[in-house]
């Protein structure tokens, strides 16, 4: 049992800043700007950001791990899709590769793969991916008892009070998403893309894949389609968005609106003192598909914010220039507290 917080009732436990690395330049940007951990994946469907031009081959990963480790930063490898009967060996090979390359932890969703990792690499630290859909402590404790996971990443569906309840009933470290794109569906429980395009986040590691997307300027406006299905239509001057199904505008009962979710980004900066008080152990920044410049900027702001909050949580407030920096890179997108704030639900 880990006892390192026994005498620290009044000081919050350390909170790790976990930043995205879609490639080596982004990894270096995160490391240079104050990430405690970076997370990355291999260049295939063994991870949930399986997009063309993203991720790491053997050589770039080894270089990335060396770069991070020389600067005291951990590297977590996401292997968080579900291996399917028939391609199982590719996932176990990816686990072996992550272990031999010196990853500090692997992030998994599939129980079978966890059992394999535990058996083949007993020293390797396991994190439960958000794709594992564990939203309560019974589920999280299940993965701990069976596979020895040390951390769980929570789906973006719980309120702060519900997260606090989870933390009170498990010794597994809890990581939550703090900033970036927002899945409105329970991660690991969404087959919308599979239904429309045949490409599934669970099995193929991608949602609304580029190959199914069409942008078309028409007399009615800019139309975005996914496998031929009209996802949205933008009027002249309107901010266009990628045709992710849950962020499209549809007709329901004679109203046309964002039927599932506005295209807003998650930003929990203002909640930081509360998140620390609750004992959340890590904050994840979404965005492996974003540019190194984006990763650098977001990491820098969050590093400053976490340090400032640790110095004096009572007087913490997001600085205007942090928000200005974040607004600059998110191109005027609006922000939400998502499910952490009860009214959003």
């Amino acid at each position: 049992m880990n006892n390192d917080s026994a005498n620290t009732m009044n000081t919050p436990p350390p909170i790790e800043l976990v930043c995205p690395a879609g490639g080596l330049p982004a990894l270096k940007a995160a490391v240079d700007n104050g990430a405690d951990c970076v997370y990355a994946g291999f260049r295939d469907d063994t991870n949930a950001r399986n997009f063309t031009g993203l991720n790491f081959d053997e050589k770039s990963l080894q270089e990335g791990i060396r770069y991070a480790h020389e600067r005291g930063v951990k590297v977590l490898i996401a292997l968080n899709t579900y291996p399917q009967d028939g391609n199982w060996p590719r996932w176990t090979a990816a686990v072996d590769r992550a272990a031999s390359d010196g990853a500090d932890a692997i992030i998994l969703a599939d129980p079978g793969l966890m059992a394999y990792a535990q058996r083949a690499h007993p020293q390797l630290r396991l994190h439960l991916s958000v794709q594992g859909s564990a939203t309560n402590y019974e589920a999280i404790n299940f993965y701990q008892e069976r596979f020895g996971i040390q951390r769980a990443v929570l789906p973006r569906v719980l309120s702060l009070a519900q997260i606090e309840q989870v933390i009170a009933n498990t010794s597994v470290e809890i990581e939550i998403f703090g900033f970036g794109g927002l899945c409105v569906m329970v991660e690991g429980r969404c087959a919308l893309s599979a239904y429309a395009t045949g490409t599934s986040p669970n099995c193929n590691g991608a949602c609304s894949p580029g190959k199914a997307v069409r942008w078309e300027q028409t007399p009615k406006g800019m139309e975005t389609r996914l496998n031929g299905i009209l996802i949205d239509r933008f009027a002249e001057g309107e901010r266009t968005g990628y045709p992710t199904i849950c962020k499209g505008r549809f007709e329901v009962d004679s109203a046309t609106y964002y039927a599932i979710e506005e295209p807003a980004s998650l930003n929990t900066l203002e909640m930081l003192p509360e998140l620390m008080r609750m004992g959340i152990r890590a904050i994840k920044i979404e965005g492996r598909q974003r540019s190194p410049a984006y990763v650098a900027q977001v990491t820098k702001v969050w590093r400053e914010a976490i340090d400032s909050c640790r110095r004096d949580a009572a007087r913490f407030a997001p600085k205007a220039d942090w928000m200005a920096e974040l607004n600059k890179i998110s191109e005027g997108q609006s922000y939400t507290l998502g499910a952490y704030s009860r009214p959003w639900k």
């Binding site: 409105v184 329970v186 969404c190 239904y195 599932i260 009214p343 959003w344």
Partner: peptide
């Protein structure tokens, strides 16, 4: 196909 924390039926009627 999918599950969420948000109720989309309530959302249609601008309800929480």
């Amino acid at each position: 196909l999918a599950y969420s924390a948000r109720c989309f039926t309530a959302r249609r009627f601008n309800l929480q």
